[in-house]
Design a protein around this nucleic acid. Structure first.
Length: 346
DNA sequence: AAGCCGGGGTC
DNA sequence: GACCCAGGCTT
C-alpha cells in the first residue's frame, strides 16, 4: 500500500531528482550493481570518475569475471574499502558459475553474493528490474529518523530494526526504481545532515523533526570515541633506474592485497629489514616529513625513509611479494591513497 | 553487539 | 578535528 510519503516523494523526484547519473544511462543490471557497490559509504561525486574508468575498462559482467585481481584492484585504487573490489570480483565469477554470466534477479540470490547485503540487494533489484523492496542506506535513515522523529543512533540494532519497518511501510506499489532513487536524492540534496533545505522538501508538512525544530538533533549522532594512534616506518628504495621497491600486503587486514612500500613497526625494525634484504648503508636513508593518515578505527603516522641508487638485484627473491616497479607502472597496481600521494606528488 | 575496513567532503 | 557518506562482513 502506498501513502502520502511515497506519492509526494515521487512527484518531487520528477522535477527535482537526479536523472543524469552515469549509471542511469544506460541503466543495466551490471552498471547498477557496480554503482551500488562503489557508493557504499562513498559520495556520488567521489564515485563518478571511478565508475567511468571502471566501465570503460570492464564494460560488462563477463569482462569483470575474466579480469585479473590486479586489474580490478588497480581500478579501485584510491576509492577505499578494498574488500568491496575483491567481493565484486568474486561475485562476478560466481555469476558465471551459477547464473549463466548474468546478475540474478531474485533478492535472495543477490544477497547471497559477496558484498551485497540487504539494502544493496534491494537497491539493485528495484533499480534494475523495478522489484518492490525497501532500501535503508544513510540517506533513508536520515530522512526517516527526521520524518518520524526516531530517537537513537540509526546504526544501533534496535533503531535500525524500527527504521526498516518504517521503510517497508512506505513502499509504493509502482515506480520502485524511481522511488528508490528519489529517497537517495532527497537525502543527498535536500534532507542533508547539516542545514537541510526544509523549504524545498516535499515531506515538510508531516516531518516530526521539522515541526519540532529538531532537524539539527536528528538523526542522533554516533557515540564518540577516541581513535588509537599507531606508527610505522616505510622504506622508499629506488634503484639506479628510478624503479621503486614495492611489497604486496597480506590477503587480509588493512589494505589487503594492495602494493605498498615495505613497512616496519619502528626505526629498529626498519634497520633489520634493510640489513636482511639489502647491502648498503642504512644510515644514508633520508628521513622525509611524516605522513598522517586516518582510518575509521585508528590513526596512522608513517615515517618514510628514502634511499636512491640502491642495487636492485640485492633485493632477496620475490617470495615475499617484493617487486621493483617503474614509476610509469604505478597506475597498473592497487596502491593505498597516502602511499600513492607520497610516491606521485600532485 | 561491537569491531574491522578507506578516503575524502564538509562543517 | 569531528562527523559521516547509496554498508557489509567477521567475531
Amino acid at each position: 500500500m502506498s501513502d502520502a510519503f511515497a506519492a509526494r516523494l515521487l512527484a518531487w523526484f520528477d522535477h527535482a531528482g537526479r536523472h543524469d547519473l552515469p549509471w542511469q544511462h544506460p541503466r543495466s543490471p551490471y552498471r547498477v550493481w557496480l554503482s551500488e557497490i562503489m557508493l557504499q559509504q562513498t559520495r556520488v561525486a567521489t564515485v563518478i570518475p571511478y565508475f567511468q574508468r571502471f566501465v570503460a575498462a570492464l564494460p560488462e559482467l563477463p569482462a569483470l569475471a575474466a579480469a585479473s585481481q590486479e586489474q580490478v584492484l588497480a581500478l579501485w585504487s584510491g576509492l577505499g574499502y578494498y574488500a568491496r573490489a575483491r567481493n565484486l570480483h568474486a561475485a562476478a565469477k560466481l555469476c558465471t558459475e551459477r547464473h549463466a554470466g548474468k546478475l540474478p534477479r531474485g533478492i535472495d540470490e543477490l544477497q547471497a553474493l559477496p558484498g551485497i547485503g540487504r539494502s544493496t540487494a534491494a537497491a539493485i533489484a528495484a533499480q534494475a528490474w523495478g522489484a518492490r523492496h525497501a532500501i535503508l542506506d544513510g540517506n533513508v535513515k536520515r530522512v526517516l529518523a527526521r520524518y518520524h522523529g526516531v530517537e537513537g543512533w540509526p546504526n544501533l540494532p534496535r533503531v535500525e530494526k524500527a527504521l526498516w519497518a518504517l521503510a517497508e511501510g512506505h513502499l509504493p506499489d509502482a515506480r520502485l526504481a524511481d522511488y528508490t532513487q528519489a529517497q537517495m536524492d532527497l537525502g543527498a540534496t535536500v534532507c542533508t545532515r547539516a542545514d537541510p533545505a526544509c523549504l524545498l522538501c516535499p515531506l515538510r508538512d508531516d516531518c516530526v523533526a521539522r515541526r519540532e525544530g529538531r532537524t539539527a538533533e536528528l538523526p542522533t549522532p554516533r557515540p564518540g570515541k577516541v581513535l588509537p594512534q599507531r606508527h610505522a616506518t616505510v622504506l622508499w628504495l629506488e634503484d639506479a633506474h628510478g624503479r621503486i621497491l614495492l611489497q604486496q600486503r597480506p590477503p587480509a587486514g588493512i589494505w589487503a592485497a594492495l602494493w605498498t612500500l615495505p613497512q616496519a613497526d619502528d626505526a629498529d625494525a626498519a634497520r633489520e629489514w634493510f640489513a636482511r634484504h639489502l647491502h648498503g648503508d642504512f644510515g644514508l636513508g633520508e628521513a622525509l616529513p611524516p605522513v598522517d593518515h586516518a582510518f575509521s578505527h585508528y590513526r596512522l603516522q608513517l615515517q618514510p625513509l628514502r634511499w636512491r641508487g640502491i642495487e636492485s638485484r640485492l633485493a632477496v627473491g620475490d617470495n615475499e611479494g617484493l617487486r621493483w616497479v617503474a614509476p610509469g607502472d604505478l597506475d597498473r597496481l592497487g596502491i593505498p591513497a597516502p602511499i600513492r600521494r607520497l610516491l606521485v606528488p600532485a
